[in-house]
Design a protein around this nucleic acid. Structure first.
Lengths: 149, 149
DNA sequence: TATTTGTCTACTTCTTCTATAGGGTTTACC
DNA sequence: GGTAAACCCTATAGAAGAAGTAGACAAATA
């Protein structure tokens, strides 16, 4: 199960991606549109800012904007930023690898081999799906690129 | 991430499956062999007994034994019994379906469609892998069946 | 300078995870 | 029938994480 925080992060980023051509977007607008508790969203966006996924401007007419290219930011990475590993057990995670304390022999642990397959299947999907792959986002990004010519 | 409880349950059941021809197995033996905290394992086995996966006999020479056929008990089901849904979000779970409170329109929610793919991929693996598919277990079960002729 | 906006710190509340403690009950066997 | 070996049951507890809330602060702009 992914956390609500990760789901909120995804929804917020998708919203920002859709509105990217509009420039800065208010936290409260995102919160209202995606029905995310406002203060909670604030905290999430601060995290994403630290991860250099979004940028913000303070003061009047301030707001948030996406800085990463939606065609390069995968859902898998967003979830990892918020929740940590996608793998079902630490011992098959690439980025968050940790040995199981109770495991007698990792090399022959068949649960591990099975979980590795689950991890790979999950990552195959989430690491190859980018924000831009969501239909409305794609449309807007294409349009935006056309405008930049 | 699956919980330690689910991992312990899996390891314990696999151990019982391996020892199935030996009859009753002590909690303390399983705990020692798989390095599971003994009291914690007791609680897990009680759960699995309620789920009618294992049987127990009290008193001297008592112990636990697997009652489900290892060839019919899938890893997916074991994890569900202990942890609940395999799906990354409730709204794509079959057995534990629940609507997301904040979701504006489930039918068009693209995060949901993506998560459904993750769920399906995960279940494809875990629901088609049975305890008997783990090598040492298979060997013993085959042997046991031969003895029953 | 007033208003709008994000920033920061701290706190809360609830739940789940991961156990541990300790006595109770049942059974086999001498 | 006594005793030791097992599982059974209830309660407790510390740590961590999830999901938010409150409120003062800082910056930008009009």
């Amino acid at each position: 199960m992914i956390s609500k925080k990760a789901k909120y992060a995804l929804k917020a980023l998708l919203y920002l991606a859709k509105q990217h051509d509009r420039g800065l977007v208010l936290i409260s607008e995102v919160a209202a549109a995606e029905r995310i508790p406002r203060k909670f969203l604030e905290a999430i966006l601060v995290d994403l800012k630290v991860q250099q996924v979004v940028q913000s401007t303070r003061g009047k007419n301030g707001g948030y904007t996406l800085v990463k290219d939606p065609a390069q930011l995968s859902v898998g990475n967003v979830i990892r930023m918020v929740d940590g590993p996608l793998a079902p057990v630490h011992c098959v995670s690439h980025l968050y690898y940790r040995k199981c304390e109770e495991c007698v022999d990792e090399a022959t642990c068949e649960i591990r081999l099975l979980m590795k397959r689950v991890r790979d299947a999950t990552c195959d999907i989430l690491d190859t799906t980018y924000l831009a792959d969501f239909s409305k986002v794609t449309a807007l990004v294409v349009e935006e690129e056309a405008n930049q010519i």
